[in-house]
């Protein structure tokens, strides 16, 4: 039990997917302009990564590994993720239009979000079983959401400030991300508990 909780905490805080492992940087920098959009993207990411980790783990343990085709994992995972995002999009559109309206436009963006593939591959690399993979996916996605929502909050303050010309746009956002990353380094001590 303690191990499982540690997997979630490690995914969300200690090895934060964006600030420590640099996965999903594109959407982290691109969509973090408004708090509402970031929170919606975060919701969509939690949804997709959790499902994708579950499916990838089932596929690897029951199909790829027994057949000795572990080397095919990159191709299989990326196709499964792309198909999965499409299915989730169609399913939500038909059955829960409310959620679709909130998350819909962000779903296609997630196919190429390297965090999804990254988590699936890391789970295999760490030899996680099904439950551990799902929890690790969930924790990682929560970490992504936390980081992007925090950055959106910081950016809403930056927008109003008077910056030197060369710093405007991407540079100041990267500097804010660097400071957040320093703050998140403090969580490394949690691993020792």
């Amino acid at each position: 039990m303690k191990g499982l909780i540690l997997i979630i905490i490690s995914g969300a805080l200690i090895n934060n997917v964006v600030l420590n492992q640099f996965l999903g940087i594109c959407s982290f920098l691109g969509v973090s302009r408004q708090m509402k959009a970031s929170a919606s993207l975060g919701g969509a990411v939690i949804f997709v990564i959790t499902i994708a980790s579950a499916v990838a783990s089932l596929l690897y343990d029951n199909v790829l590994a027994p057949l000795g085709m572990g080397f095919m994992k990159t191709i299989v995972f990326i196709l499964v993720i792309a198909a999965l995002v499409q299915i989730v999009e169609m399913f939500l559109k038909k059955h829960s239009p409310g959620i679709y309206k909130a998350l819909g436009i962000y779903l296609p963006l997630i196919t190429t979000n390297c965090a999804v593939l990254g988590v699936a591959l890391t789970n295999v690399q760490n030899g996680y079983n099904f439950i551990q993979s799902v929890l690790s996916g969930f924790g990682t996605a929560v970490g992504f959401t936390l980081a992007i929502v925090l950055l959106a909050g910081i950016r809403s303050r930056i927008e109003e400030s008077d910056l030197p010309e060369p710093l405007r746009g991407a540079p100041i956002v990267l500097i804010a991300a660097a400071l957040m990353s320093i703050a998140f380094m403090g969580f490394a001590d949690l691993a020792l508990v």
């Binding site: 640099f22 540079p171 100041i172 991300a177």
Partner: peptide, 14 residues
């Protein structure tokens, strides 16, 4: 460490 990556790329764009 990770923060350095953000700082160096920010510096390049500046």
């Amino acid at each position: 460490q990770p923060p350095g990556a953000f700082l160096v790329i920010a510096l390049f764009i500046i």
